[in-house]
């Protein structure tokens, strides 16, 4: 079985943060990059661009782990790994805001919501879109969408390097 994954090539990132604008837009009422309120401090992108130890920008987003720590830590059952897509799905209605996921994610990719700090917010892979907005918005190809074999698949083991299957 194949699954969709966001693939990051940090060496291509120019630090433009266009992925963050696209993410903010997708989760705003208008969904429009023209009209999303970039000054609304109660909103937050679900992806990040941070500088690494060498001062180079690196795009970051939820890795949709095969064995997600956040799911293991979630006491309310709001976080689940979808067996069909292998994505880590967060049900906001079920979220108790206990922040166990926030503390357990080794990558810091799930955070309390900026508006009321009542529930957790993470990448939803732009749920109903074929391609996440950050992927479409990346001008350099640092963020791309790939098809990768599901780790649940029996048989061959794939190693990913540079986005190519070997």
């Amino acid at each position: 079985m194949m699954m969709k994954r966001i693939f990051i090539k940090p060496e291509l990132c120019e630090g433009c943060k266009n992925c963050q604008v696209a993410c903010l837009a997708e989760h705003s009422p208008s969904r429009s990059v023209w009209f999303v309120n970039l000054s609304d401090q109660s909103s937050q992108p679900r992806n990040y661009v941070e500088l690494n130890n060498e001062g180079r920008p690196v795009p970051l987003s939820c890795r949709q782990c095969d064995e997600p720590e956040c799911v293991s830590a979630c006491v309310s059952g709001a976080l689940q790994r979808d067996p069909a897509t292998c994505l880590v799905v967060h049900n906001q209605k079920q979220c108790a805001g206990c922040w166990m996921c926030v503390m357990s994610c080794p990558y810091g990719m799930i955070l309390p919501d900026a508006r009321e700090s009542k529930i957790a917010v993470k990448c939803d892979f732009c749920a109903d879109r074929g391609t996440p907005r950050c992927v479409e918005a990346c001008p350099t190809g640092a963020i791309s969408l790939i098809e990768a074999p599901s780790p649940d698949t029996d048989g061959e083991y794939y190693v990913l390097t540079g986005g190519e299957q070997q």
Partner: peptide, 11 residues
């Protein structure tokens, strides 16, 4: 086709 969102908004 990929535009810069900050440029679009003038910020």
């Amino acid at each position: 086709a990929v535009k810069c969102g900050f440029g679009m908004q003038g910020v």
